[in-house]
């Protein structure tokens, strides 16, 4: 199913590396996505500031996926990067039948300016981001290029 979806084509210039994480669409699990994002960015040799940027961007990406959940769902995150420093993350929300594994559903989010703030944060932190719906499956993505360090 995921393979039929559109995704940005930025990683591929060099040898690609991939990490995949699947978790329940549960607010309590979000820190795992952040931790994985930070670990991947560190592995891809991003500097401290960009690691922190990606940690926050992954969080905002997951908030997008969780904000529209009406029932049990899982979130799949695919992190891919190459040796040239191009990194992309594709997040997919996949509805599940039946009760969630732990009985908790994600928080519907705090009403107010959160969505606008989320867009502003992503605009500022990553090079590009977007998303789309494929039937009941929502997909979002972001991409970020490693900043070259001064010699």
């Amino acid at each position: 199913m995921t393979h039929a979806m559109w995704a940005p084509d930025t990683v591929g210039a060099g040898p690609a590396h991939r990490v995949e994480l699947t978790l329940a669409a549960d607010a309590q699990m979000l820190f795992l996505a952040r931790m994985t994002g930070a670990a991947v960015a560190t592995r891809a040799d991003f500097d401290y500031e960009q690691v922190e940027d990606l940690r926050l961007a992954i969080d905002e990406l997951c908030i997008k996926l969780m904000s529209s959940v009406n029932g049990p769902a899982r979130i799949s995150l695919s992190f891919q990067w190459d040796d040239e420093g191009a990194l992309e993350v594709i997040g997919t929300r996949i509805p599940e039948d039946g009760p969630s594994t732990n009985g908790r559903h994600p928080q519907p989010g705090v009403a107010g300016p959160t969505s606008e703030l989320s867009e502003r944060i992503l605009d500022a932190l990553v090079d590009d981001h977007g998303g789309d719906m494929f039937g009941e499956t929502q997909q979002v993505w972001l991409r970020l290029k490693r900043q070259e360090r001064l010699a």
Binding site: R34, E60, I63, V110, A111, P113, T114, L117, I121
Partner: peptide
């Protein structure tokens, strides 16, 4: 150590 758009949204509200 970390705050995202939901936390900022709480402060704005």
């Amino acid at each position: 150590s970390f705050i995202d758009s939901t936390g900022l949204g709480v402060l704005v509200s």
